[in-house]
Design a protein around this nucleic acid. Structure first.
Lengths: 235, 235
DNA sequence: CGTTTTTACTTGTACGTACAAGTAAAAACG
DNA sequence: CGTTTTTACTTGTACGTACAAGTAAAAACG
């Protein structure tokens, strides 16, 4: 079967956004313009735009048009955009380890499929700071077969998810997470510059992506004393 | 202006679900049936059903119909359905304090509006257990002006949110939350039967409801050693 | 009697039309 | 020149039609 008309238009526009032809704040072509350029009816054009809105790429304003948005559905606890919003402060990021081939670590909380274990693994780790104070340590693992050259390029705007979208056309479509309050072990205590045994928030994450069988695993350790993790959800 | 036709149908069906005329698993009338009973076109009927799906009341199955669902969008961390899903186990609930008039407590993390402070306040507290082991202590506050008789009735299926929906026709439409890892104070340690100073997960919640200016404030204290808080999100 | 085909439903996609309602700039007014 | 009205766009709602595609039971078949 041929792909549905509205999905063709939807994916075309999505690609334009991902490629940066439209940036945040830009208006997409109006429904009527889409009608004539794609030879479709407004019903179909509207369906394409409504799907893009559901996916979080655009917002729609009555009387004005469809505006490109920062894609930031709250996925579990942290937004797609990232950590800065969750603590509501400007966050600086320091790489503890740049992306490079490594091994799947038993620290990963969610079970890893046999397929993933057979493949090699990319690992990177970052320290997030507010001002000079480290507030989160973040470890990430992912299969080595989906992101060619990830070790050689800088993250777009320092964001892994943005790089995933714009460079590899892979979107985050869901997540699973588990939360625990724990005592900081020696390693974490040193990295967060807190006393051994301080209470820390440990978040285990498994991100689902638009690419089949490709998941991203993260283990986050947060010092929430001064900057609690916050988010919000609205229907 | 008169209310939109699709919203009339949407709200009519929602009320039927809230009143229990349709229960989870039931099929709503088909699009064509809605067309004839409400004298509308399928466009309008479909819009009403699609809105109900967005709100989480129903699911739609190609070739079959619209089926009533348990409404359980993940709202922040915990689902609307409640705590049992978040820990993935059967949870028993013990009231530490039944709903009764009380005072706004400074323990509430999110700021309370002047209007709310002027009104009196309903408070209730619960202990959630897996088997015999307490895993969460939950304190709740809400303005006294919206839920007449809440102190005199039992919660439907033990769920406050279900009671809110079916008895008062009030739905949760959003939430804000903040998360902290803390050391258990004396009170919490006793209630959770853990040593003083054990790491606990403290969740501050402000639920937004379908009723204007009516919010529900909760402070949760979780022992995550054996039962971490888990949830998932999918586009 | 067991299998295949048909039928009668369901929702999904896509066509097309008309007007309501919001927005913002251009044009007309006094 | 400042205010009001008009105009030309935008998306939103609602009408109506036709066929595609999924589902499940009834009917026909061998």
């Amino acid at each position: 079967m041929e792909e549905k008309r509205y999905r063709q238009v939807q994916n075309f526009l999505k690609l334009q956004i991902q490629k940066g032809y439209y940036v945040v704040g830009d208006y997409l072509p109006s429904e009527n313009e889409l009608c004539s350029t794609f030879s479709i009816t407004r019903t179909t054009a509207r369906k394409a735009l409504e799907e893009l809105m559901k996916e979080g790429f655009i917002g729609r304003q009555h009387g004005k048009g469809s505006i490109v948005r920062e894609r930031r559905q709250s996925l579990g606890l942290l937004t797609v955009k990232g950590f800065s919003e969750a603590v509501g402060k400007d966050v600086t990021t320091v790489f503890l380890q740049h992306p490079q081939p490594g091994f799947w670590n038993p620290e990963i909380h969610f079970p890893i499929s046999e397929n993933e274990i057979r493949e090699s693994c990319i690992h990177f780790a970052r320290q997030r700071c507010v001002g000079e104070i480290p507030v989160m340590i973040e470890y990430n693992w992912l299969a080595n077969t989906h992101l060619e050259g990830i070790g050689d390029i800088a993250f777009i705007d320092g964001s892994f998810f943005k790089t995933l979208s714009q460079h590899y056309r892979i979107e985050i479509i869901g997540s699973e997470q588990e939360l625990r309050a724990e005592n900081a072990n020696k390693n974490i205590a040193v990295l967060l510059r807190i006393p051994l045994g301080s209470p820390i928030l440990h978040i285990s994450l498994k991100f689902h992506t638009s690419k089949n069988n490709f998941y991203i695993y993260s283990e986050l350790y947060c010092n929430t004393v001064n900057y609690p993790i916050g988010n919000s959800y609205h229907l």
